[in-house]
Amino acid sequence: MAHAVVEWTDNLAAEGFAVKPLLSLIAAAMRDADGVFPPGGIRARGIRLEDYVIADDSGQDAFVNITIRMGAGRSAEFKAAFFGGLFAEVKAHLEPVFERRYLALSMYVDEADEAGSFKHNNIHTRFRKAG
């Protein structure tokens, strides 16, 4: 399980921001992590925010926030290397936006509590059949 939720402010549309390439970048990084994230459990989705206040509410500012939730069990070393590298890729992807406007980028990584996690997923079956 690895789910990424990208929230972004709607004022980024004027900058030509498209969330789909960013979602694809995140999902590809997870798929390419040497099997650490089962492909059938990868999700990346975006939420365009229309109601928000940033800083002094002047309208000059925008933000992109990425929250990643995954199952427990990855080492601290893996998390630091993988998510540090992913954050660097996301920053590079958004560099053109940073050059044109004020932007806050954040990424948070959480581990799901398995006792409070309920899932039913037959997508994994497709990958087992293909392998």
Rank of each mutant, 00 (worst) to 15 (best):
E111R: 02
A33Y: 08
A130W: 06
E77M: 06
A72G: 08
M1R: 03
R69D: 12
K129M: 12
E77A: 14
V5Y: 00
S106I: 07
N11E: 07
D61I: 04
G85L: 08
G131P: 00
G116N: 14
A55D: 15
L23V: 08
A33G: 09
A81R: 14
A55L: 13
S75R: 08
F82P: 03
H3G: 00
L22E: 07
V6I: 15
R100G: 05
L94E: 04
T67H: 11
F127E: 09
L25S: 09
K91W: 03
D51A: 13
P38D: 13
E95C: 02
A80Q: 14
T125R: 14
M107Y: 09
E77G: 06
R69Q: 13
G84D: 04
R100T: 08
I42R: 03
S58G: 10
P38E: 15
L12P: 02
P96E: 10
M1F: 09
T125H: 12
D56W: 08
A13Y: 03
H3I: 07
G131S: 11
N11K: 07
A112P: 00
V97G: 00
V97R: 03
L25D: 05
A80T: 13
S117L: 14
G41F: 02
G35Q: 08
L12T: 05
I47W: 11
R48S: 11
D61S: 12
Y52R: 05
A18Q: 15
F83N: 07
V53H: 11
Q60F: 08
F63A: 11
G41C: 05
Y102R: 13
E114K: 14
I54V: 15
L49C: 15
G116E: 10
K20L: 13
P38N: 10
A80K: 15
A18L: 14
E111V: 03
F63R: 10
F87Q: 09
G41D: 02
L105P: 04
H124Q: 09
I66W: 00
F63H: 11
Y102L: 12
F17S: 02
K129G: 04
D32P: 01
H3F: 04
V6P: 00
N122K: 12
G41S: 06
G116Q: 12
L25R: 06
Y52F: 15
V97L: 15
T9N: 06
A80F: 06
V19D: 14
A72D: 11
A104W: 06
D110I: 02
I26N: 01
R74P: 00
G59K: 06
